[in-house]
Design a binder for these strands. Structure first.
Length: 203
DNA sequence: TGAGCCGTCCAAATGCGCAC
DNA sequence: GTGCGCATTTGGACGGCTCA
């Protein structure tokens, strides 16, 4: 951690692998960090005069550190992704977090720590599993007593009453954000018609 | 009861794909 | 080329809750 403008910074973004190469950032380098906006810390440049002799170049991992699946980077894309899909616990966690987020299904109380536990204990594998959760399973978890468990179950129940647009957005399909989800919902009108359109496309 | 934990929200910047 | 939408990044404030 370092102090930048009176704020402790523990991590700073470098955007992607290409950016690391463009700025020639190596492991062990001293760097200049600036705050973009209120809080976002950004690595601006390297201080070459402070580079340790043993500084090594960054090498992107070939396999996912969580599930061991191959790391794939499509041609013309900047991002490298784990190819494990929902088999990968890290991807499962993020899918659940996105599903529950306020702008998606808005399940209050389902945050990072709780999702972490649900995935770790294999209680929840897909978002659909959330709707099969019971009080007994929840109160086994850390920092989850009856009050919290009850509140969470209520929030999950409430989320059943949602809009088609929110549901589509909650699925976490790449390149389908809120605006696209709204467009799809407006165009198809119902989930059945959307699914039917999908099947018609496959035939 | 109070300390500490947890979840949520927000800010600005940037990369990228795509439509026009 | 421009504009839009999506995704992602981090720290701090705040309210609700758990637990010793």
């Amino acid at each position: 951690s370092v102090l930048v403008g009176g704020v402790t910074v523990t991590n700073a973004t470098l955007h992607n692998e290409d950016e690391i190469r463009r700025k020639d950032v190596r492991v062990g380098d001293a760097v200049v960090v600036r705050r973009a906006g209120d809080v976002i810390p950004e690595v601006v440049r390297v201080l070459p005069e402070k580079r340790p002799p043993a500084a090594s170049a960054f090498v992107m991992a070939a396999t996912c550190p969580v599930c061991g699946s191959q790391v794939v980077r499509q041609q013309d894309e900047a991002v490298a992704r784990c190819s494990g899909g929902l088999y990968c616990p890290a991807q499962r966690r993020q899918a659940l977090l996105h599903f529950a987020s306020r702008r998606a299904m808005d399940i209050e109380g389902l945050g990072e720590r709780l999702v972490e536990q649900l995935v770790e204990h294999d209680v929840v594998r897909t978002p659909a599993d959330l709707y099969r959760l019971g009080l007994l399973a929840l109160v086994q978890l850390e920092r989850m007593a009856e009050k919290s468990a009850g509140n969470l179950l209520l929030a999950i129940e409430r989320s059943r009453q949602t809009t088609l647009a929110r549901f589509i957005y909650a699925l976490g399909i790449r390149n389908v954000g809120e605006a696209t989800a709204r467009d799809l919902a407006r165009h198809f009108g119902s989930l059945d018609r959307l699914l039917a359109a999908d099947e018609a496309q496959l035939l």
